[in-house]
Design a binder for these strands. Structure first.
Lengths: 243, 243
DNA sequence: CGAAGCTTTGATAGTGGTCAAGCCATGTGG
DNA sequence: CCACATGGCTTGACCACTATCAAAGCTTCG
């Protein structure tokens, strides 16, 4: 597989223009490749010593369960995303990770990671840039749940997901394939599955987006962006930010 | 001032047992001290090149404003907390920072920070540990807003704040001084100020907590912890985790 | 073919928002 | 020293958004 077309390289390439040397350093960072079946937790709350992974294919979600059984999904990870970078460095995991689909992921050893960073510092910048973007997304997610109503929140979510997928070559501004059930959407957006269903219908009836049969089709990008108060700079990644 | 009693040293000391050498290295990291008046933004969304600070006294909040004027507070920072660590390293700030009270903060130069880290690596561990805890708190905040009702959410918030304050010597498990208005609480918890008021009354009437005249008094810790589904390990920091 | 999971829709109810008004404390200016 | 303005707190009335409960249709899969 051409490394430049691996989701991870594509994503980092959007931040930092990568030389051949850097791309091959990226490759060497990947350890053993593992496969996880859908639905069976990869990591549990309180688990220690788990590895870090780079997602090669498939989607996973990170979530927490409350005492009353309610679940809140904090984030989804898609191909090219890092998994458990922070928990491997500093703490036992404080959340669960579950594959949404069948997942392929490369294990990353901390030692390899650090070595790569010291040899090719621009990669360190790129990885930290990506991590920082992930964090900003959690914050945006918090804002969404706190201050946007169900329709705005759903619109924002679908737009953001689209932007992320486009970055790794898995989607276009016109739409993308999305394996999430309405239950998963509900747990991510802090809503009930029933209500998500109604909201999706409304968005569809207003000619904004369609989400059916695992496919998101964006029919009115500007309308969605306005509804969601979406930061368009997320969408405009024509070239690397750092040459 | 005895450095061990500075909030920042106290906080890091809860993670890593600090030697005298490390404490003095911490001191040297502090740059010029600045004072900010309450209510006037220190940092705006989109601003670049702002400095990082360590809060010496006073409280600040980090927030975002939506197009319709709604505000979501992402986090409060209290003495001993780092401010803008991440945005100074990687990006223009994507949120605003406003002092809740008059604030004193020491500027931290990235160069000094990195130098300190390479000379006393255990401090790097401690700082990153603290940063990682802050991130975990944002996630917990997300979970709260997404899946806890107003009463649980408020209880959780007051407990967490208490735990954080205790860590830097500004509170006890029985209560603490808290300069937040009900409007600020509302914007942090994703509720309206009116509703916050009702919730606080309920919590008071149930004999759980009192929050009046800038003072939080915890009357029934166990009851609160159970109501909020609060992770008690936050509370139990008798000694450093890393000797 | 039956089971299981996901989607869809209706009916009902509750949590929390909005609007409005009054109260209290503080601070400022006359 | 009083009058007024300001900002925060408190309460009531009303209503909207979203949850919950229930049931039915659709797919997928063994």
């Amino acid at each position: 597989m051409d490394a430049l077309h691996s989701p991870f390289a594509r994503k980092l390439g959007a931040f930092v223009a990568l030389s051949e040397k850097e791309v091959s350093a990226l490759d060497r960072m990947h350890g053993r490749r593992k496969v996880f079946p859908a639905g069976k937790d990869m990591v549990h709350q309180g688990q220690t010593d788990q590895a870090a992974y780079i997602l090669a294919s498939g989607w996973v979600c990170s979530y927490k369960i409350l005492a009353d059984g309610a679940r809140q999904i904090v984030d989804f990870q898609i191909p090219g995303d890092f998994l458990g970078l922070r928990s491997v460095l500093f703490r036992t995991s404080d959340h669960n990770i579950e594959p949404v689909t069948k997942v392929e992921a490369s294990e990353v050893l901390v030692s390899d990671l650090l070595e790569t960073f010291s040899e090719t510092p621009r990669l360190a910048t790129a990885v930290l840039w990506a991590a920082s973007r992930d964090e900003a997304m959690v914050v945006e997610h918090l804002v969404s749940i706190g201050r946007r109503d169900a329709k705005e929140r759903t619109a924002h979510f679908l737009l953001e997901l689209g932007a992320r997928l486009k970055l790794v070559g898995l989607g276009a501004t016109s739409g993308y394939a999305c394996p999430l059930s309405q239950y998963l959407l509900a747990d991510a957006l802090g809503l009930s599955a029933v209500h998500i269903n109604r909201v999706l219908r409304e968005l569809r009836e207003h000619g904004l987006v369609t989400f059916q049969h695992g496919q998101v089709e964006i029919h009115d990008l500007d309308g969605l962006v306005e509804l969601a108060d979406f930061d368009k700079t997320y969408l405009d990644h024509d070239g690397p930010l750092l040459k």
